[in-house]
């Protein structure tokens, strides 16, 4: 039975499911779970945190914490960790989590690691493995000292989702001196496109000239929206004016390495391959069974993208 603190990330009053997944999982493994929530007006999250498994809930509620700044949030988390002294401080490896945790770890002069893709309880200690060299290998993290807490961020979808063992939900309010915070949050901007950039998206769906028009790319966009994916294009499609140059994937465009790359109506000539062949999983949809793209695809469908992609979209809807 370890004392496990979990940073329960919230933005705009909504808890991240990746965080609540960790809480449930730790709880279901028999540990005492303490959720740490930082923000403004966050007390309303008490119910949700209790039902996903938090035995204790540490609130740091302050107007300075309404919007994330690294400095203010790390001061808040440091204060809570110092006061609660857990064995582990876990967080989801989200943009906020991966930024925040290291400040706290170094302040506590305590071991830390990040982006674990495999986590397993061995009694009260946690065994973690993580990808290295852009996922070309994995390694186990060995913690050298006996310091605590150990700070670990975990990649989303690593621990099983949900779980319905509620915790005791005992809350504590912490007040933190944030008067020395010099950083200011100046606001948020929605990105120019609601979709992620091809280079950073986990899933990329690309179209070639066979889409025949800019309008037809909507077929791919529908699927992309479902998956939170980016939409890319081959050079031929960009040349034909169907997509802007910033979406071009290839030797003279962007080089991408997503977890999933779906190539629709793209033949897979080397100039395109050079931009996406390191993708973890490649799906090819093309009417030409001899198209070179099938040489690198993990899964290939010889077919008309105008039939296959909408059908695929429907099928994905069923599992989302």
């Amino acid at each position: 039975m370890a004392n496990v603190s979990v940073f329960a990330e919230q933005r705009d009053g909504k808890l991240k499911s990746a965080s609540t997944d960790i809480i449930s999982w730790a709880k279901s493994n028999g540990h005492t779970v303490s959720a740490v929530v930082i923000g403004k007006g966050i007390k309303s999250l008490e119910g949700e945190l209790k039902s996903c498994g938090a035995d204790k809930i540490q609130f740091v509620d302050d107007s300075t914490l309404e919007v994330y700044t690294p400095q203010a949030y790390s001061e808040a988390l440091i204060s809570v960790v110092k006061n609660t002294n857990p064995d582990y401080l876990l967080a989801a490896h989200t943009p906020m989590g991966r930024d925040l945790v290291p400040y706290v770890a170094m302040e506590m002069e305590s071991s830390s690691t990040s982006d674990c893709t495999s986590v397993e309880w061995n009694g009260d200690s946690l065994k973690c493995r993580r990808p290295v060299f852009s996922g070309k290998a994995t390694a186990e993290v060995e913690f050298i000292g006996n310091d605590k807490p150990k700070f670990i961020t975990i990649r989303a979808n690593t621990v099983p989702a949900g779980g319905d063992r509620p915790g005791e939900g005992v809350t504590t309010d912490h007040s933190v001196d944030l008067s020395n915070v010099t950083q200011k949050a100046l606001g948020m901007e929605k990105g120019s496109s609601a979709r992620p950039d091809v280079t950073e998206a986990a899933i990329v769906i690309s179209g070639g000239r066979s889409l025949k028009s800019a309008e037809n790319f909507k077929i791919l966009e529908k699927l992309a929206d479902l998956l939170g994916a980016a939409v890319g294009a081959s050079r031929a499609a960009v040349d034909a004016g169907f997509r802007p140059h910033r979406d071009q994937v290839g030797q003279t465009g962007k080089v991408v390495s997503p977890s999933l790359y779906i190539a629709c109506g793209i033949s897979g000539a080397i100039q395109h391959l050079a931009g996406m062949r390191t993708s973890k999983c490649i799906v090819a949809i093309n009417t030409d069974p001899e198209a070179p793209i099938f040489q690198v695809a993990d899964y290939g469908i010889v077919g008309d993208l105008f039939e296959v992609v909408p059908a695929l979209t429907e099928e994905i809807k069923k599992i989302r």
Binding site: G268, A269, I270, L273, P292, Q295
Partner: peptide, 8 residues
Amino acid sequence: CAGAFDDR
């Protein structure tokens, strides 16, 4: 290089 890497 083309012979080594380019499928065509």
